[in-house]
Design a protein around this nucleic acid. Structure first.
Length: 259
DNA sequence: ATGACTTGCGCGGCAAGA
């Protein structure tokens, strides 16, 4: 079972790259973030033509998440815990897997900058809601992958200039503390289960030659429940995607789980 | 160096991203 996640930074700008990725990597499940469009504008026909089922939670201009799956899926949109939250940042699916299922949560966690703003308050509140929801899901004791753009740099080895990012909403102590609380519920950070290496980046800014200088961040993650972590075979960051024409500023990251 | 990039919206420059 191959599960991938990719912040595409506008799915309409990335449709050709997305189709090419599906053909080359053939993920069983692909989670997408930052669609930047409503469901009606999503390139559904192009994706379905590749043999994928599509579940979209869209929003005009901002945010937007989707789950693509080779097999039909049951889905629910929205992160519980705040009925007044109208930002499209979470969608969940139940994917058939042999005699059992895989549950997949696809998330686009708020950026939160600057730290002294209501945006940061929203980020922290969103992380609290995610923790509460994740705790409920873990109690099901299923194979579960919680993945997406977390907008969290877990550790100094995950950023090219830790000191320079100390007060950024992606790396601030409170942000990292809440991420650790989430992990402590019982998740395995898939990448960290296979390597302790630094510079395992998934994002490079478009500006100031960040890609050329390898000034990156590790902010896209796949968190595994114990039942999923038991089946972990490999983790791959599709770094080469950043060097292609018209790239997203994020690259896909994926896991292979033993069938 | 008023720098530097890419989106959406919509047609002129903002807002947002990270």
């Amino acid at each position: 079972m191959r599960v991938a996640t990719w912040n595409v930074n506008s799915v309409r700008q990335r449709t050709q790259a997305l189709v090419a990725y599906l053909r080359e990597v053939k993920p069983d499940v692909l989670c997408l973030q930052e669609l930047k469009c409503v469901e009606e504008a999503f390139p559904r026909l192009e994706i379905e033509a590749e043999g994928y089922n599509v579940a979209v939670h869209g929003q005009k201009t901002y945010n937007g998440v989707a789950i693509l799956s080779k097999t039909p899926i049951e889905t629910s949109a929205g992160l519980p815990g705040d009925d007044g939250d109208d930002q499209a940042r979470y969608i969940e699916a139940i994917v058939p897997w042999g005699k059992t299922v895989l549950r997949v949560g696809c998330l686009y966690l708020p950026n939160g900058n600057p730290v002294s703003s209501d945006k940061y308050d929203y980020k922290l509140a969103w992380m609290d809601r995610l923790k509460a929801h994740a705790k409920k899901l873990l109690a099901y004791e299923e194979r579960l992958v919680l993945c997406g753009d977390f907008n969290v740099i877990p550790d100094a080895r995950d950023v090219y200039d830790p000191a320079g990012w100390a007060n950024d909403a992606l790396f601030a102590p409170k942000t990292r503390e809440k991420f650790r609380e989430l992990l402590a519920l019982g998740f395995t950070d898939a990448l960290r289960a296979v390597t302790d290496a630094d510079k395992q980046y998934t994002f490079w800014d478009y500006q100031a030659g960040a890609w050329q200088k390898n000034n990156g961040l590790r902010i896209d993650h796949l968190l595994l429940s114990p039942q999923a972590a038991d089946r972990l075979q490999s983790v791959t960051i599709d770094r080469d995607m950043r060097a292609k024409d018209k790239p997203s500023d994020h690259v896909p990251i994926r896991v292979d789980l033993k069938d």
